[in-house]
């Protein structure tokens, strides 16, 4: 609201030629003008401001940048092209209408059924925790981790690979970090999940955050985790030399770097444009998905009742 009023004031100031002529004390004048216009324009701009707010803060579109993050293109201007992005989005929607891809995040537990020419019976199911989500558009992929026969196994899947038969989100939750690659250096029990896990059927308002803190194995590690500012790790014990080095290499100012965030993100206006383009189709798919989910839950409830009785 304040922004809109300020903009209006600027315009008003430009229009007021007499103010420029009498501009001996421009500061006092401008404040006066601002006060007056504020009062005058409050009523007129209310409706405009509201519509703007609605567009930006509409709950569905605002949520989309987390749920469908791969629909946002690579922000590097060297690779951007509107036609290519549009075609890519169409292809993604076409694939999504064939296979329903659930909402999931890093930290969620997934089950992927994959048609593998080298597997016995040509079909393979893998359950694991998603420790990484990468890429955008049709290149987007995710990394699942689990422990098989006492050995940590990681499988990378392309999200839009047509050989994927089914993706189930067994447990929908987030962790404290954006990627959980440190599970490679944690005790195996933290990345062990049973292969016969069932879908935890809950309909939740928002995605829960699992704030579990994981201890790391003693050194050596695959990466220098003390450099990474991890929140989901209990305490990182390293010697003084490594601590000093980590402190010297830390960049605590980077979160204030506005240009860096600008370079690495798609502006809000463009995001709205992109998601309004795919909104109707995604919404349809989501409704279908919800219906299926409810059906599945009803079936489970019925089966549990019969078991107990």
């Amino acid at each position: 609201m304040t922004m809109v009023s300020r903009l209006w004031c600027q315009k008003a100031w430009q229009n007021l030629a007499f103010a420029k002529v009498l501009g001996k004390e421009p500061k006092t004048f401008s404040t006066l003008v601002q006060l007056k216009t504020d009062e005058a324009t409050d009523d007129n701009n209310d409706s405009q401001a509201q519509t703007n707010d609605e567009l930006i803060k509409s709950p569905s579109l605002g949520n989309y940048r987390f749920v469908y993050s791969e629909f946002l293109p690579d922000p590097n201007p060297l690779y951007r092209n509107s036609i290519r992005e549009k075609l890519e989005r169409m292809d993604m929607l076409n694939r999504r209408s064939v296979l329903s891809i659930p909402e999931f995040y890093v930290g969620s537990i997934l089950a992927v059924t994959y048609s593998d020419p080298h597997a016995v019976g040509k079909i393979n199911k893998f359950v694991g925790i998603c420790i990484l989500r990468e890429g955008c558009g049709l290149r987007s992929s995710f990394l699942l981790r689990n422990v098989v026969n006492g050995e940590g196994i990681e499988v990378r899947y392309d999200l839009y690979d047509p050989a994927i038969q089914n993706i189930d989100c067994l447990r929908l939750e987030k962790r404290l970090d954006d990627e959980l690659l440190y599970l490679r250096d944690a005790p195996l029990e933290y990345s062990t999940f049973p292969f016969d896990m069932e879908i935890e059927a809950k309909i939740l308002e928002s995605v829960p955050v699992n704030d579990i803190k994981i201890p790391l194995n003693p050194l050596p590690w695959s990466q220098r985790w003390e450099h990474h500012n991890l929140k989901g790790v209990k305490e990182i014990v390293v010697n003084e030399r490594r601590q000093k080095k980590a402190a010297a290499l830390a960049k605590p100012w980077e979160k204030y770097d506005l240009m860096k965030t600008y370079r690495e993100t798609i502006p809000e206006e463009e995001q709205n444009e992109i998601f309004s383009d795919v909104y109707t189709k995604l919404n349809e798919l989501e409704i279908q998905k919800n219906i299926l989910k409810r059906k599945y839950m009803l079936q489970r409830q019925n089966s549990s009742k019969t078991r107990t009785s």
Binding site: D91, N94, S97, P117, K122, Y160, I164
Partner: peptide, 13 residues
């Protein structure tokens, strides 16, 4: 080429 509108790829044993 596999069009994205077509069903999943399945290998037959």
């Amino acid at each position: 080429v596999h069009p994205f509108t077509e069903p999943n790829i399945e290998y037959q044993s």
